[in-house]
Computed example of a mutant assay.
Amino acid sequence: MRQFLIEDIKTWDRFYRANFVNCLTGFKPVSLVGSISNSGVPNLSVVSSIVHLGADPALIGYINRPIAAAPDTITNIEHTKCYTINHINETFLQQAHQCSAKYLPEVNEFAATKLTEYYEDGIIAPFVKEALVRYEMELVEIAPIHYNNTFFVIGQLKSVFLEESIIASDGFIDLSSAGSIVSIGLDGYAKVEMITRLPYAKP
Rank of each mutant, 00 (worst) to 15 (best):
E141Y: 10
L44Y: 05
K114H: 14
R2W: 06
P66G: 06
P29L: 09
Q95F: 05
V46T: 10
T80D: 00
Y147L: 12
G34S: 06
A112K: 05
I85E: 07
M194F: 15
V182W: 02
V41E: 00
K28C: 07
F20K: 05
S45Y: 02
I181P: 02
P42G: 05
E7W: 01
P126K: 10
T150N: 09
E164D: 15
H79Q: 14
K191N: 12
L198N: 03
I145P: 00
Q98A: 15
L24P: 00
W12A: 06
L115D: 00
L139D: 06
T150Q: 06
C82K: 15
C82E: 15
V153G: 05
K158N: 03
G185H: 09
D174Q: 14
L186N: 14
V33L: 11
S45L: 11
P57E: 12
G61E: 11
L132K: 14
A96V: 09
I184G: 08
L93V: 03
K114P: 00
F161K: 09
N149R: 13
A201W: 10
S35K: 06
D72E: 08
P29W: 11
T113M: 12
L32I: 03
F151L: 07
S48W: 07
A55C: 07
T196G: 02
G26K: 01
I85R: 08
T84N: 01
F161L: 01
I154D: 09
S31M: 15
G155W: 13
Q94C: 05
T11S: 14
E193M: 08
S165Y: 10
L104N: 04
A201D: 00
G188F: 10
D170I: 10
V160Y: 11
Y200H: 10
E141A: 08
A201F: 12
N89Q: 13
W12D: 02
H52Q: 15
F127G: 00
V46Q: 02
A58L: 09
E130H: 08
A111D: 13
E164N: 13
H97G: 01
E78K: 14
A18G: 05
S45T: 15
L157Y: 12
F20N: 02
P144K: 09
V153S: 04
R17Q: 13
N148V: 05
Y16A: 11
R17L: 01
T91C: 04
G61Y: 11
K102D: 11
D72G: 00
E136I: 08
K102L: 08
D72S: 07
N19A: 04
Y118T: 03
P105F: 03
S169K: 13
A143W: 08
S165G: 01
I123M: 01
A168W: 13
H87K: 04
A18C: 06
I77Q: 11
P66A: 06
T84P: 00
V33S: 03
I142S: 05
I181A: 02
I195M: 15
D72W: 01
I74G: 03
